[in-house]
Nucleic acid binder design. Structure first.
Lengths: 223, 223, 223, 223
DNA sequence: AGCTAAACGAGACGGTACGTCTGGTCTTCTT
DNA sequence: AAGAAGACCAGACGTACCGTCTCGTTTAGCT
C-alpha cells in the first residue's frame, strides 16, 4: 500500500528529472532504449568487474551508445548507478503487509532484504554505500534520495507489523501505536546487524541469522 | 591485556612485511622519518580532501618524499591507510575491563567506538570500509587483518562483560559462559546499529543512542 | 565586361546547385534572409575568431538558424565560406580597363589586389587558400571554381594591358599579341611576389612594393 | 658555408628548448628514440592521410608512445610538425655556392626549392603554411622561426650570386654590393612565382618554369 | 478554404579527437 | 643501497563539434 503510493509518486522519476516541459517543444524525445541500455550495461559491468571496472567509456561501449549521450543525461557513473537502484530496489524491498503472523512477516521481510543485498541490484547498492564513504556528493545524493525514501517505507512497514503484534499480544490495552523514536531505534536494531554483517564482515548472512534478529526485535518491542 | 599482547605481536607489522633480514647488510637503512611522514601525510590528506583526494603523488609531495620511495614500501595508497589504522585503532577500541557495573562498562565501550568513528583515524576506517565495498583486494586485506583482530578483541571483551552480568544477576546458575554463537550475534546486535547509522545513514549517533542499544543487548542476553 | 558576363553566368550559383525544379511544387521557398544571415555570420566569425573559431554550430547560433537548415543548403563550413567570396571577390578584383597609361593601370590593379587581401573577404580567401593546403576537397573546389575563374579574368586583363603597352611602345611591330604561355608567366611574376608576401611572410605589402613589381613586369614584357 | 654556420647555431635546437639545466639534476633523460619516433610518425601520417589525418592520438599510436609523452614535450601537433621541418628543411634548401655560372647556380637553387616542396618535408611545410593562414599562433611560430631563418639564408645566398653575376658582367665598376631592399624584392621575384604556383594553383612547376624565373631575376638585377 | 509538401526550429544521437590527470613502473644520478 | 627526480606507458576523464536523424510547426502555392 505504502509502496504503491510511493510508486505513484515516483513513477517516471528515473526519466529526466527536468520539470514537465511547460512550453511545447519540438524535436526528438529522449531515447528510452538508450536509457535502458545504459542502466543495463552499468549494472552488468558492476557485477562482472566491480566498481572500478565500471567506466563511462565502458558503459557507452557496451550499451552501444556514445559517451556524449551519457553525459547529456547523467553527470557521472555514480548517477547512473543511483538510477539503476531507483529502478529496481523499491519493489524488491517492499513490505508485503498482512501475510501471516507479525513474526512471520518480519522474518520474511528481513530475509527479503538479505536476498536483495545478495542480488545484482543489491551489489550496486553496496557499491554505492561504499562510495558514499569516499565521496561527499555521492553520500548526499544517496542519502537524500534512496536511503531516505527506503527508510520511510521501512518505518511504515515496521510500525504496521508492530501494531499488529501489540494488538495480538494485548488487544485490550491502549498504547497501540509505537512511539516514533522507538520505532526508529527498533528499525536500527532490525537492519543494523544485517548491514553490519554485509558491510563490515563482508558476507550476507542466512535465514538463521535474520530470523533470530527478527525475533529479538519483537521481544524488545514487547518491552 | 589482550590488546597489549596483540600489540606485541604486531609491533612493526605496519612496516614492510618482509621477514627481518637474516644476513647482515650494508647501505642506509629504511628512513623512519620518511615512513612517519608518509603515514602522517596520508592521514591528513584523507581528512582534508577525502579518499579521492588522497593520491600517491599527493602523499609524496606533502611528505617530501619521492613516489618511488612510497612504492618501495607500500603497494598502494590503501596499504598506507591500512597502516595508519593499525597504528591507531587498537588502543582506541580497547575494552577497559572491570570499571563499574557491566552495564556501565558496556555503555562506555560503545560510546568509545562511536567516538573513535568520529575521530580522524575513524574516518580512515570508514573510508577503508567504503573502499572495501569497491575493491575485493582491499576487502580481503582489511577483513583478514584489522577487522578479524578487532572482532576477536570485541568478542573477548563482550563475553567478559556478559559473564559478569550473568554472575551478578543469578550467581547460583550453572550456565555462566555464554555460548559462542550467541556471543557473535549479541556482538552484532551491539555494533550493528551503530555501524548502520554511520555507514548507511551517514551520522555518528550520540550517547542516548549507544546507551539504549547497550541496554537492549543486556536485556537480550538475559533472555 | 568579361566580369559582368561572368556575373550573369553565376548569379544564383551560390544557391543550391540543383537544376531548376522541373515539376511544379508547393510549400515555402528557401528563406533568403536565412541564407544571408548564414553568410554574414560565417564572415563575421572568421574575422573575429579565425578559421577554427568558425563552426557550423556557431554560425547557426549567430545566424539564428538551425543546424539542419545549414546542412540542407551547404555541405560544410568551407562551402559557406566559398559562397561568401563568390559573392564579394569578383568585383573587388575586377580589372578596370583603359584608365590611364598601361603602367598606371597595372599598378592600380595590383594595389587593388593587395587591398582586397587585407579586407574581410580577402581574409576569407586567405583562410580558404590555407585550408586548401590541408584538405584536398577544399583545394579542388577552390581551384576549379574561384581560382580558375579569377585567373582567366586576370589573364584577360593583363593581356589587354600588355597589348596597350606594346602598342604604345612600338606601334609599328607586328607581334602585338602576347603569347599565351608568356602571359601566364608574366601573371605569375605579377601576382607571385604579392601572394608570397601575404601567405608566407604574413603581411600585405604596401604600394611601394606593388608598384615596383608592376614596373618590373612591364620591363620583362618588353624583353 | 652560411648553412653550416647556421647548423652550428641550432644543432640541438629541436631538442627541448629549455636552457641548459643550471643546477645538476637527477633522473632519466628525455628519450631520443621516442622523440625520433614521434617526428617520424607525424611526417608519415601527414603524407599518407593529410593534415587532418594527423592526430596526436594517431601519432602516439604509430610511434608506440603514450599521449602524455607527446604532450610533455610538444604543445600540439603543429609543434611536432614544426620540429620535423626544422630537422629536414635547412639542408634541403641550402645554397651550394660557387658551382658553375651565377645563372646556373640560381637555376639549380630554384629547382632545389621546387623539388623540396614536392618532397615529404616540403608537404609538411605546405601544410604548415596552410595552417598558418588559419591560426595566428602557428603563423607566429612558423614565421619567427623557420621562415625568418630560411629567408636570411636565402638572402645571403642570393646576394652572393648577384655579386658574382655583377662582377662577371662588369668587373671594373664599383657598385658591386646589391642594396639590401633590392635584394629583398629580387628574392620575392625569385620565390614568389614558385610559391604562388604551389600554394594558389596547387601544382609544383617544372624546370622550364623555374629556369625562366631565374633568368628574369638576373635580367632585373642587371637593371 | 482547405491540402499538402517543403522549409524550418530544436535538439538527440553515434562518433572522433581533444588536452588533462593519475596510476604504477622504470631509469638515472646523488648521498 | 636508499632515496629524489622525473620520464615513460596506459587508459579514463569530461568537453567540443561533427554530420545525421527525427520530431512538430509554420508557410506557400495548388486545387
Amino acid at each position: 500500500m505504502a509502496i504503491s503510493a510511493a510508486r505513484n509518486g515516483e513513477g517516471e522519476r528515473d526519466a529526466p528529472r527536468t520539470p514537465p516541459p511547460v512550453v511545447s517543444r519540438t524535436g526528438p524525445r529522449r531515447s528510452e532504449s538508450a536509457r535502458l541500455a545504459v542502466l543495463r550495461a552499468a549494472d552488468d559491468l558492476l557485477v562482472e568487474r566491480g566498481f572500478d571496472g565500471v567506466t563511462v567509456e565502458g558503459i557507452a561501449a557496451r550499451a552501444g551508445v556514445s559517451k556524449q549521450t551519457i553525459y547529456r543525461w547523467w553527470k557521472s557513473k555514480v548517477d547512473i548507478l543511483l538510477d539503476t537502484i531507483a529502478d529496481d530496489a523499491p519493489e524488491a524491498l517492499a513490505w508485503e503487509g498482512g501475510r501471516g503472523t507479525p513474526e512471520e512477516e518480519l522474518k520474511a521481510q528481513l530475509r527479503r532484504v538479505a536476498d536483495f543485498l545478495a542480488s545484482p541490484p543489491g551489489q550496486v547498492l553496496q557499491a554505492l554505500l561504499g562510495h558514499a564513504q569516499l565521496d561527499e556528493r555521492t553520500a548526499r545524493r544517496l542519502r537524500e534520495g534512496f536511503v531516505r525514501e527506503q527508510r520511510e517505507r521501512d518505518l511504515a512497514g515496521l510500525r504496521a507489523v508492530l501494531a499488529r503484534h501489540a494488538g495480538a499480544e494485548l488487544d485490550r490495552e491502549t498504547g497501540s501505536e509505537v512511539e516514533a523514536a522507538t520505532a526508529e531505534r527498533l528499525l536500527d536494531a532490525l537492519l543494523g546487524p544485517l548491514y553490519h554483517q554485509v558491510l563490515v564482515q563482508g558476507q550476507v548472512p542466512g535465514p538463521e541469522f535474520t530470523d533470530a534478529v527478527a525475533e529479538w526485535v519483537l521481544e524488545l518491542a514487547s518491552r
